[in-house]
């Protein structure tokens, strides 16, 4: 059964007709061509598909598109500033070589931002536990942990500067 949904994706309002079985990740990838959000599994285990829905990280393979009706969704494509300046978490991943093949990266970055936003102070252990739902096969996590700690610090700095 098709249904019409309206949501805000990366700041822009979109209205589309979707099948009721369409997953949010399919909607993003196939209807909106936002292919930065990836699919790495079919059991909601890998985190390659993490996006933000109303500011919180969500595995977009676990949510139907119709459930996101009315929500604000941010994907990896929506993080950098309009002039191309990277979000501090994106910049930290680059600085600390937190990615290799790049496939897990969008989900990692989105999860990491949520983690930083919800934890005023992050430790290595908290990062490792917080990223438990995101699998990376390439990096061995070492540099991802470094990147997330640095990115969180940069985000906190930016938040302070804004206050």
């Amino acid at each position: 059964m098709a249904r019409t949904i309206t949501l805000t994706v990366n700041g822009a309002k979109v209205t589309r007709e979707v099948e009721s079985r369409t997953l949010l990740v399919q909607f993003l990838r196939e209807h909106l061509e936002l292919t930065g959000t990836h699919i790495g599994c079919d059991t909601s285990q890998c985190g390659a598909c993490v996006v933000h829905v109303d500011g919180r990280s969500v595995k977009s393979c676990t949510m139907l598109a119709v459930q996101a009706d009315g929500a604000a969704v941010t994907t990896i494509e929506g993080l950098a500033a309009a002039d191309g300046t990277l979000h501090p978490m994106q910049a930290a991943f680059r600085e600390h070589h937190g990615l290799q093949c790049g496939f897990c990266t969008p989900g990692m970055v989105m999860s990491a931002i949520d983690l930083a936003q919800t934890h005023p102070t992050l430790t290595e252990t908290a990062v490792r536990e917080g990223l438990e739902g995101n699998i990376c096969r390439c990096t061995g996590y070492h540099n991802i942990v470094k990147a997330v700690l640095a990115g969180a610090e940069a985000m906190a700095g930016r938040a302070e500067a804004a206050e």
Binding site: G36, I76, E77, F93, G102
Partner: peptide, 11 residues
């Protein structure tokens, strides 16, 4: 990294 970090990789 720039394309991978901004969702512009092409798999």
């Amino acid at each position: 990294d720039l394309r991978f970090l901004t969702g512009r990789g092409t798999y």
